Computed example of a mutant assay.
Amino acid sequence: MKIRTSKFYAGLFALAYATSPALAHPPIAERAVADEKAAFEADRADILAMAGNFKVRFDMQESTRWDASYTPIDKKISGGNEVVRVIEDSGRKIVLQHMLVINADGKDMIIKHWRQDWEYEPAKVLVYADRHQWKWEDVPERMRRGRWSQTVWQVDDSPRYGGWGQFEEQGGVRRWRSNWTWRPLARRDAVRNPVYDRYLAINRHQTSPDGWIHWQDNLKMGPKDGKLSPVVQEYVLNSYTKFDGYNVKAADDYWAATKAYWAAVRSTWDKIATTKGGIGIQEEAETGTIISARLLEMADDIVSGKMKQDKAIAEATKLITDNTKVIG
């Protein structure tokens, strides 16, 4: 399916969004100050526990088909070594940066991976709105108490999806559960040009004695007969197991060399989101945003000494500014 933006697809999205469930739980009742503080600190501890050195297993399975004409694809399992670092912690906001460490032909390579921002009792969240655009969505005031938003960003720090939810304990297991969130196709799906073109999903994060897991329940949706319809259900379990038997230092060295550059990139995306009412940028199935490859290349050039940091920041700022549009 050719990726494009149109009034037709915008209408389909609006219809699905209006009819999809938005609230995962009822409002959290007022608690004593001591209980509120204890819950807040427990939430923070669970978020911060996602930082560390891990071996990661990505387990993806299309299971239940909702469209009788669709044949689910085979189960896919992949993995790697991933370093997760806390790059910001202001109390009510925590930012975690993921970096993959890959050994190719005896040489360790770093791939800047996804980023997750956690914010306590947010007033609004940047969410996926339609292909190539993300917009601000207000969190209902009555649903903010005691809850955290999670915003996930792509390898070039452009947005991917956002949602909000609460930490809860059931059966002795503590987890964070999101509301229903819209998400664009992952690269693994987008490159196949499937009949579905987005996900309606619930995300869960929970710590374990060995690390933590990210559990996704993805309903893959696509246009059919003038409306968005479910095609197939997918279950994804990403397991992060504590492990440091690889070149962790390579990731830390990469971040030390590029963190100022990436801070400037994040700041530019944030400014665009604020001034343009969200973020609109063209994406391609193979690469993500059309500027992703260049933003990552410049970070590598900073590490190798081929490019000065100030020059890279100036070019990155211009690339982001020139390739984004106002969200109306």
Rank of each mutant, 00 (worst) to 15 (best):
I3P: 08
F13N: 08
F13I: 14
F13P: 01
L15E: 15
A16W: 09
Y17R: 10
P27T: 02
K37I: 12
E41S: 00
D43R: 01
M50G: 00
M50V: 05
N53K: 10
V56A: 06
F58D: 04
D59Q: 03
E62Q: 15
W66R: 13
W66G: 13
W66D: 12
P72D: 05
G79E: 05
E82W: 04
E82H: 04
V84I: 11
V86H: 01
R92H: 10
L100F: 10
I102F: 01
A104C: 07
D105Q: 09
D105N: 13
D108S: 15
D108A: 09
M109P: 01
R115S: 06
D117V: 15
E119T: 15
D130Y: 10
R131G: 07
W134T: 03
E137A: 11
P140T: 05
R144I: 14
R145D: 08
D156P: 00
F167W: 15
G172L: 06
R175E: 10
R177L: 14
T181D: 00
T181C: 05
R183N: 07
R183M: 12
L185Y: 01
A186V: 15
D189Q: 12
A190M: 06
R192N: 12
N193M: 15
N193Y: 13
P194D: 08
D197I: 15
I202H: 04
Q206N: 10
Q206M: 11
Q206V: 06
S208M: 08
I213N: 09
Q216T: 07
N218G: 07
N218H: 10
K220L: 15
K220H: 11
G226I: 05
V231H: 05
E234T: 13
V236Q: 14
N238K: 14
T241P: 01
F243T: 12
G245P: 02
V248S: 03
V248N: 00
A257I: 03
Y261W: 02
W262Y: 09
R266E: 12
T268A: 10
I272C: 00
T274N: 01
G280Q: 08
A285G: 13
I290E: 01
L295W: 07
E297C: 00
A299N: 02
G305V: 08
K306Q: 07
D310E: 10
D310Y: 05
T317Y: 00
N323T: 05
